[in-house]
């Protein structure tokens, strides 16, 4: 069966098996694809997803361990975000408090070290409009094998299309793009710590690209929207 069945009752039953999880293997993958492509299939899945929820009431809520949330924050680099348009004042206060605590704790070590030996700029790129006006100045900071940081200076003209975000990608030679996160839309400079996979990708990348994505970034981990800019990485500052 290459396309979803036309018989609605059959489609509802297949959707039920998909939602229950009893549809497996290639059939499951195919059904997931149908769902993405067809509003009719999606509707049948939503029907069961909503209707079967009461079956879960036998479960008792279970508080996840305290270390889970910080890991989610770290993975999404929420602490480094440039500040969404509607970020609550409370978040800013919490971040300010956290920053103060962090500064106090690390002042003796990290801060001192970074003053003594600031991370050198390994590579840099300028993402510019077609007329050559720079929008983002990117600097990759670090030393050899240890994951470093990405400094992003945002200039004017960084506003993405309505309800979209600009996402930055490293383009490793012969490899898949690796996300470097959503780019700030407001002018200013931020520095983002890079994860090991981002660092490895940058070490073998010769270009960066900027794609247009849903708010918060690509849902798939690969660019889903059109590529707005591609810029070469150059050695040193």
């Amino acid at each position: 069966m290459k396309t979803p069945p036309t018989d609605p009752e059959l489609l509802y039953r297949l959707a039920g098996e998909y939602v229950l999880g009893t549809m497996t293997g290639p059939a499951r993958r195919r059904f997931a694809r149908w769902r993405e492509e067809s509003a009719r299939v999606d509707e049948c899945c939503v029907f069961w997803e909503e209707r079967l929820m009461p079956l879960l009431r036998e479960l008792k809520p279970l508080e996840p361990p305290a270390h889970v949330w910080p890991r989610i924050e770290a993975r999404l680099a929420l602490g480094n975000r440039a500040g969404g348009p509607v970020r609550a004042a409370r978040t800013r206060r919490m971040l300010a408090v956290a920053a103060t605590v962090l500064l106090t704790v690390v002042a003796g070590s990290l801060l001192y070290r970074s003053r003594v030996a600031p991370l050198p700029t390994l590579e840099a790129a300028t993402v510019a409009t077609s007329t050559g006006a720079p929008i983002w100045e990117l600097r990759i900071l670090g030393r050899a094998e240890t994951p470093g940081a990405l400094a992003i200076q945002t200039r004017a003209g960084a506003t993405p299309p309505t309800a979209r975000a600009y996402e930055l990608w490293a383009l490793p030679k012969g490899g898949k793009p690796v996300s470097l996160g959503v780019l700030p839309a407001v002018a200013g400079t931020i520095t983002r710590t890079l994860a090991a996979n981002q660092w490895q990708a940058l070490l073998v990348a010769d270009r960066v690209a900027v794609s247009i994505e849903p708010p918060g970034g690509s849902p798939t981990g690969q660019p889903t929207g059109s590529i707005a800019f591609v810029s070469p990485l150059r050695r040193g500052g």
């Binding site: 999404l76 969404g84 348009p85 509607v86 970020r87 609550a88 978040t91 919490m94 708010p215 918060g216």
Partner: peptide, 9 residues
Amino acid sequence: AAGDAYALE
């Protein structure tokens, strides 16, 4: 969706 980290928290 609007990028509010506090909303996610």
